[in-house]
Simulated assay, not measured.
Amino acid sequence: MAVLVVLIVLVIVVGLIFVVLYNGLVALKNKVEAAWAQIDVQLTRRSELIPNLVETVKGYAAHEKDTLDAVIRARNAAQSASGPQEAAAADNMLTGALKSVFALSEAYPDLKANTNFLALQEELTATEDKIAYARQFYNDTVNKYNTKIQTLPSNVIAGMLNYAPREYFEAAGEARGPVSVQF
């Protein structure tokens, strides 16, 4: 009788541990997906601002077609990117193209003084800050998730349920440095 009670208690304890670990894994997985959604929201917001910026610049620097075309190509690549690695590469390309557009404002004083251009530049700068915060939050959440699925005892359950490590949203090369936006 005592053995049966101990066995029942042991099964209940193991079951509770399984439930707690499983729920923790699900919560972290959902948090990673929500963090990625926030990055996607900010990247989409930036992509929506770019056509207005390009149209504003076209009016002042029509012969800078190559620069403006590069921005549009980078924007299209960013919109079609899927997953953190592809999105990071597209994000880096778009950031470089935007730097070129902002550099144009130095060559065109009328553009630099245009209130529409200045407002768009300010919006893009604010959006870049939001992207940086969302990226940091996402990477922190991915770190917690990856650690959880790789450490005992949750790695046993994660392995049984095919939980795989997630990719970080990382900047590559020169994009790891600060982005300078000239006003």
Results as ranks from 00 to 15, higher is better:
M1C: 07
V6M: 08
V6W: 12
L7V: 09
L10I: 09
L10V: 09
V11R: 10
I12K: 10
I12F: 11
V13M: 11
V14N: 05
F18L: 08
V19N: 11
Y22C: 09
N30E: 03
K31C: 02
V32H: 01
V32G: 02
W36P: 01
A37H: 06
A37M: 05
D40L: 04
Q42C: 01
Q42M: 04
T44D: 06
S47E: 12
I50Q: 04
P51D: 09
P51Y: 15
V54C: 10
A61V: 02
D66G: 12
L68A: 11
R73K: 13
R73N: 14
R75G: 11
Q79W: 10
A81E: 04
A81K: 06
P84F: 09
Q85L: 01
Q85R: 06
E86Y: 05
A89I: 15
N92K: 10
M93P: 05
L94I: 14
T95E: 11
T95P: 14
G96N: 08
S105L: 05
S105A: 12
A107P: 01
A107S: 13
P109T: 10
P109N: 04
D110K: 13
D110E: 15
L111K: 06
L111G: 07
A113K: 12
N116F: 11
N116W: 12
A119I: 07
L120C: 10
E122N: 09
L124V: 13
T125L: 11
I131N: 07
R135M: 02
N139A: 04
K144A: 07
I149V: 14
Q150W: 08
T151K: 09
T151A: 12
L152Q: 04
L152V: 05
P153V: 08
S154K: 02
N155A: 05
V156F: 15
I157Q: 08
A158G: 01
A158P: 00
A158M: 06
N162L: 08
N162V: 02
P165W: 03
R166S: 00
E167Q: 02
Y168H: 06
F169S: 00
E170V: 06
A171Q: 03
G173K: 00
A175W: 00
G177Y: 12
S180K: 15
S180P: 13
F183R: 10
